[in-house]
Amino acid sequence: MATGGRRGAAAAPLLVAVAALLLGAAGHLYPGEVCPGMDIRNNLTRLHELENCSVIEGHLQILLMFKTRPEDFRDLSFPKLIMITDYLLLFRVYGLESLKDLFPNLTVIRGSRLFFNYALVIFEMVHLKELGLYNLMNITRGSVRIEKNNELCYLATIDWSRILDSVEDNYIVLNKDDNEECGDICPGTAKGKTNCPATVINGQFVERCWTHSHCQKVCPTICKSHGCTAEGLCCHSECLGNCSQPDDPTKCVACRNFYLDGRCVETCPPPYYHFQDWRCVNFSFCQDLHHKCKNSRRQGCHQYVIHNNKCIPECPSGYTMNSSNLLCTPCLGPCPKVCHLLEGEKTIDSVTSAQELRGCTVINGSLIINIRGGNNLAAELEANLGLIEEISGYLKIRRSYALVSLSFFRKLRLIRGETLEIGNYSFYALDNQNLRQLWDWSKHNLTITQGKLFFHYNPKLCLSEIHKMEEVSGTKGRQERNDIALKTNGDQASCENELLKFSYIRTSFDKI
């Protein structure tokens, strides 16, 4: 039985969820670079991206490699990797027998973001014989899940209580170790020597080791999670996991709180800001991140802002960003909400898709409305799209047979046209069989910064309504002859009103 693990408890099935942008060198404390989270699957090609990484700022997932063999891993080693800020997950990587050479110096898994409450997941690794993470000293947050690894031993010899604050939620089941077939031998045991430290858990006094050649490092209890030197002297209180010299914040392997210019500090002093819960960055760093993602459509890219001495992905609820200094300031009234469309555009074809934009005031991208039916549609669209004030790209209304009016965009005031449909149009209306009105132009103002209007096959939309939009939106004169079809717009509506004058002759039985 794995020490510190839980057996036999019912657990939810383990679901495996399925960018080499360097964020800056980590400095003297770390020998390499800070790398983003990685999802490495199918083959070993991307694994080489770990070569210079000291910190993975995010998670590391290595999974679904069915053609790899043990010899493929023999020359692979990433000794610079010290810390993973989120979680480490391995799933069905064939041929991998140990992690001792792959990650010989991995010391800390912070667990800032977890995989279903777990910071370390080893699942269905069919050839893994031992973990071998002999320098792993601290899992700051989260638990361990090690399950269905039929060859995995050296679990009962690990004292997880020396690595985690609590072992109650560890789930370590259905491994070879369960069948008591392992016969784990710690260093020196074969020669009758006791080389590794022994600890007591559940009444068992057991030597602690990761492999037959690597003991588990056990520091004096007084050192807590700070770690200790090879001689057993406690590291500085700002260290986490390990250090090369005692009581020196510049000799830590990793930091308990924050890293700044080669030393570990309790908090980031001005003019620095907390970033990702582990390091200090200056304003320029946060500003660069903001600008890199301002026009990016890459998933996970955030326009970072500053709030409460932190550089964070977005302002919290009730705050909006001051564009001059990136500071989050309290909103006066309802907060603006910028919604970034991942692929640059979004099609609204149902109430469900409209709900995804609920509360958005600025759309960074283009909207395509293609709704053919739905219950209580006008009210639903207004509830979900009615706060949109600005669209950076274009607005396209296409084959939306259920629409009679666009009044559900009740606050839309600006279409920038930074991206144009077919390279020309910022407003595009095609084949809307029941569209009769755009907006009530006596109450609604709309500016279209650039781009043209396109109207074709809107049989109940009168040309007068379209011409009014040209005047109000500032697009009059931009359109070419064929942009607004004269014969297919309003051709099934009563669009022309003329005053009919009647004269009559009164007659009676005795007068003409």
Score class of each variant (00 low, 15 high):
327 L>I: 07
48 H>R: 06
78 F>Y: 08
107 T>E: 07
65 M>E: 05
125 M>G: 00
308 N>G: 05
280 C>T: 00
96 L>F: 00
288 D>P: 02
293 C>A: 08
226 H>F: 15
50 L>H: 00
124 E>N: 00
304 Y>V: 11
299 Q>A: 07
130 E>F: 06
324 S>A: 12
262 G>A: 13
259 Y>M: 13
214 H>T: 05
77 S>I: 09
149 N>W: 00
56 I>H: 04
237 S>P: 11
322 N>K: 09
48 H>G: 01
281 V>K: 01
44 L>M: 10
225 S>M: 11
336 P>V: 11
290 H>P: 04
46 R>Q: 02
279 R>E: 01
304 Y>P: 03
79 P>G: 08
63 L>N: 02
59 H>Y: 05
286 C>Q: 01
63 L>I: 00
93 V>H: 13
99 L>T: 05
279 R>G: 07
199 T>H: 14
287 Q>E: 13
93 V>P: 00
225 S>I: 14
318 G>F: 09
240 L>S: 09
229 T>N: 09
141 R>L: 02
333 G>S: 15
188 G>Y: 09
44 L>I: 14
263 R>T: 08
166 S>G: 08
224 K>E: 10
310 K>F: 10
262 G>I: 03
264 C>M: 01
285 F>V: 04
59 H>N: 04
160 W>I: 00
78 F>S: 01
52 N>L: 08
258 F>V: 11
182 C>T: 01
228 C>D: 03
240 L>Q: 11
327 L>G: 04
64 L>W: 00
306 I>T: 05
293 C>P: 01
307 H>T: 00
48 H>I: 11
315 C>W: 01
232 G>R: 07
168 E>R: 12
253 V>G: 11
238 E>K: 06
334 P>R: 15
150 N>E: 02
204 Q>T: 01
44 L>H: 06
263 R>F: 12
297 R>C: 15
100 K>L: 08
117 N>S: 12
148 K>L: 14
279 R>V: 05
286 C>A: 14
112 S>V: 12
150 N>S: 12
127 H>S: 14
134 Y>T: 05
223 C>H: 00
140 T>V: 08
211 T>H: 03
305 V>T: 08
254 A>D: 10
286 C>S: 09
322 N>R: 04
190 A>P: 09
328 C>W: 01
262 G>C: 02
172 I>S: 10
240 L>V: 07
229 T>W: 07
317 S>P: 05
258 F>G: 13
42 N>G: 01
138 N>V: 02
173 V>S: 09
33 E>I: 12
139 I>W: 00
158 I>T: 05
256 R>D: 06
288 D>N: 13
169 D>L: 12
295 N>G: 13
203 G>L: 08
128 L>N: 01
90 L>F: 05
45 T>R: 10
252 C>A: 01
33 E>T: 07
292 K>W: 05
203 G>D: 14
93 V>L: 07
57 E>D: 15
124 E>C: 00
91 F>C: 00
156 A>E: 04
296 S>G: 10
134 Y>P: 06
154 Y>I: 04
240 L>F: 06
48 H>E: 12
228 C>S: 02
65 M>A: 07
148 K>W: 04
297 R>T: 09
218 V>A: 11
85 T>H: 07
302 H>Q: 14
54 S>K: 06
82 I>K: 07
80 K>S: 10
192 G>L: 12
195 N>D: 14
222 I>Q: 10
225 S>H: 14
180 E>R: 15
76 L>C: 06
285 F>W: 05
329 T>E: 09
243 C>G: 00
186 C>A: 02
98 S>M: 02
310 K>D: 15
78 F>C: 03
141 R>F: 03
321 M>R: 11
190 A>S: 09
215 C>I: 05
210 W>K: 01
241 G>H: 03
105 N>L: 01
214 H>F: 12
317 S>Q: 07
201 I>T: 06
132 G>M: 01
209 C>V: 04
219 C>Y: 03
226 H>V: 14
286 C>T: 15
273 Y>K: 06
164 L>C: 10
143 S>M: 07
240 L>A: 09
187 P>C: 04
137 M>R: 08
86 D>N: 11
111 G>R: 00
310 K>I: 12
165 D>G: 11
273 Y>L: 08
258 F>T: 07
211 T>R: 03
174 L>N: 05
120 L>T: 02
117 N>M: 04
106 L>K: 00
50 L>A: 05
277 D>L: 10
131 L>P: 00
216 Q>I: 03
280 C>L: 03
223 C>Y: 02
272 Y>K: 04
113 R>W: 01
293 C>S: 07
143 S>R: 05
52 N>R: 14
117 N>K: 01
102 L>T: 04
303 Q>V: 04
34 V>H: 02
203 G>S: 11
333 G>E: 15
236 H>V: 03
240 L>W: 03
305 V>L: 07
190 A>D: 03
286 C>I: 03
190 A>R: 07
237 S>N: 12
56 I>T: 03
162 R>V: 10
223 C>A: 02
68 T>L: 04
44 L>W: 11
256 R>M: 11
197 P>W: 03
179 N>L: 05
215 C>Q: 03
319 Y>V: 10
250 T>I: 09
128 L>P: 00
90 L>S: 01
136 L>A: 01
149 N>Q: 01
208 R>P: 11
54 S>E: 08
168 E>L: 14
196 C>K: 06
211 T>E: 15
85 T>K: 07
281 V>D: 00
332 L>I: 05
228 C>F: 02
169 D>T: 14
42 N>V: 00
108 V>M: 06
119 A>Y: 00
306 I>S: 06
247 D>W: 12
85 T>A: 10
184 D>C: 11
256 R>T: 10
42 N>F: 00
92 R>H: 00
171 Y>R: 03
258 F>Y: 15
250 T>F: 10
56 I>Y: 00
316 P>Y: 03
238 E>V: 05
